[in-house]
Design a protein around this nucleic acid. Structure first.
Length: 259
DNA sequence: AAATTTGCCAACCGCCACTAC
DNA sequence: CGTAGTGGCGGTTGGCAAATT
């Protein structure tokens, strides 16, 4: 049972790519473009799994890749995006032209985690390390983010900016009541509930800057992820995504602000 | 100088989403 | 509607180089 493997494993190379393999892959994609990854290895004369070819191309051979160290601006952008998107490396990478999700993920794990820890922040929640645990804002999460407000560093909000609106749902982590709840706790919860009810009348504006980047994934087969839709936007509210599959840009979230 | 530890990053693996049939 | 095929994503691993003992 189970799914068949993505490719024939018996006669495929594994491990580090040789220069010759790289050259074959580059030559093939230059001639034929990025097509069907499954059939590419055979067509290109490579003894590699299609997935492996795709990964090698996307993470290492693509001509538009930016090499070299991350800048301070990139660091801060990654931190901001991670605080709102979590480990959605591909979405984060969409905001950093020339950087790959794998690169950002590695960089996060090796550098930024430590950087945040040295600032006394929890890398996962972006909250102070000694603070009570709380949920960070994740995709699809309709509860108010627990992270501190991030102010937009962009002094010129007029450029390519949309305001994202999320309707507030009642925060309900697991629905379990604590049987040892005291009267004070209950009063506090009641107070919180009232505040939430009041807030439900309002909306959170997520102030997101959108950058436009050409994308060359399987546009004919599948549209790129629209961050608006991914964040649970009501269709047609602020998102211009037509979901037609012929779009020419992928949204790049850079900043948000809570009002 | 040799052995061991640590850090980095390319690559792999398994799962999921999406599409075509 | 169900299933198979495919691409994409995120977590993890393995190997190499640098640093340390």
């Amino acid at each position: 049972m189970g799914r068949s493997p993505c490719c024939e494993k018996a006669h495929t190379n594994k491990g580090a790519w040789t220069k010759e393999e790289d050259q074959r892959l580059i030559n093939y994609i230059r001639l034929h473009g990025e097509g069907c990854w499954r059939t590419l290895p055979k067509a290109a004369g490579l003894l590699r799994c299609g997935k492996s070819c795709r990964l090698r191309w996307i993470n290492y051979l693509r001509p538009d890749l930016k090499r070299g160290n991350f800048t301070e601006e990139e660091d801060e952008l990654i931190i901001k995006l991670h605080s709102m998107l979590g480990n959605k490396w591909s979405l984060i990478a969409g905001s950093l032209p020339g950087r790959t999700d794998n690169e950002i993920k590695n960089y996060w794990n090796t550098h930024i985690k430590r950087k945040l820890q040295s600032r006394g922040l929890d890398p996962q929640t972006h909250r102070p390390l000694n603070a009570a645990p709380a949920k960070s804002l994740q995709l699809g999460d309709t509860s108010p983010p627990s992270v501190p407000v991030l102010n937009s560093p962009n002094p010129n909000p007029s450029n390519s900016k949309m305001v994202f609106k999320m309707e507030l749902g009642e925060s309900n982590d697991d629905g379990n009541c604590n049987s040892t709840t005291t009267e004070e706790d209950q009063q506090e919860q009641h107070q919180i509930k009232r505040e939430n009810e009041m807030e439900e009348e309002e909306e959170i504006d997520l102030d997101l800057s959108l950058g436009l980047f050409p994308f060359k994934s399987r546009a004919s087969q599948r549209e790129r992820v629209c961050v608006c839709c991914h964040l649970g936007l009501q269709s047609g509210e602020s998102c211009n995504c037509t979901r037609s599959g012929t779009g020419t840009a992928t949204a790049a979230v850079s900043v948000y602000r809570l009002h």
